[in-house]
Simulated scan of single mutants.
Amino acid sequence: MLNFIGKGSAFNTDLGNTSAFIKKDNSLLLIDCGGTVFHRLQQLDILSGLESLYIVITHTHPDHVGSLGEVIFYSYYILKRKVNIFFPKKELMKSFLTSIGVSSEMYNINSFDIVYVRDRQLGQFAIEFLPVSHVDTIPSYGFIMKLNGQSFYYSGDANVISNKVIEKMKNGEINRIYQDTCGLEYENNNHLSLTKLCDIVSPEFRNNIYCMHLDKHITEQEIKDNGFNVVEIKY
């Protein structure tokens, strides 16, 4: 469903900041926009000729919004288009963007918990934001997205998967779960360790889980040996 341009944690820069997209013709839906993302978008020539650009933000850590300003500037000055941002905390996002010199006429922001969009190329899609457990200093969200008759859950950075999401996966309402997964295991971890992921998801459902935001303390083979998938980076 998603094309990934990075799958690393903040310190695992070899894999790039975790970010994914869906593109059809001249419309692009981008998930998170960390410090390495604008450079990768340019390398892959993903931004050229866009008429509609939607960006879903899960939280405001630098590895998720570090190049958001650059993408907005590029869209506004080069593409002559406003970016459409989806993030539940409107004032927080506006304050952040103002602090890096992005003025309000350069973007639109939708802060509803449930968003419905009809795009000429992407079609109709819906996003339901769900608060997740990550850090105490800023709000963090995962979301369920429905597009073209299929649904997926994207965790953002989170140290647990809610029972609501697990049940929706088990009954077929969610086709895939994209989950923040790490190798480190310690008390009050801000990310979900592979050990805990194994405790949460029974073997028969693990093929529905795609691990992302990988740290340097885990290997893709470990993840696959436990029955899970790893997202692939688009080159």
Rank of each mutant, 00 (worst) to 15 (best):
I223M: 01
Y116M: 07
N190P: 11
Q221S: 15
N12Y: 08
I5Y: 13
L97D: 09
I72C: 00
L30E: 05
S27C: 08
K170A: 04
L92I: 12
L41S: 08
I109Y: 10
S151E: 05
L79K: 06
D25Y: 03
N171D: 05
L192R: 02
I100Y: 11
F125A: 08
P139N: 04
Q121V: 06
P131T: 04
Y74P: 09
T13P: 03
S103E: 05
I127Q: 08
Y76G: 07
L122D: 09
Y210Q: 01
D215L: 03
V65F: 14
Q121F: 11
S151G: 01
L44Q: 15
N26V: 13
V83Q: 08
N159E: 08
V165C: 10
I177V: 15
R176E: 10
H134V: 01
S27N: 06
D225R: 03
L28F: 01
V56N: 15
D63P: 14
Y107V: 06
H61G: 11
T18N: 13
I161C: 05
Q124R: 15
L97F: 08
S111N: 13
G16C: 07
T98R: 10
N175G: 09
G8A: 05
K146Q: 14
E128C: 10
L41P: 11
P62T: 14
I166H: 03
S103C: 07
H39D: 15
G142I: 00
L184M: 14
V37N: 02
K82E: 03
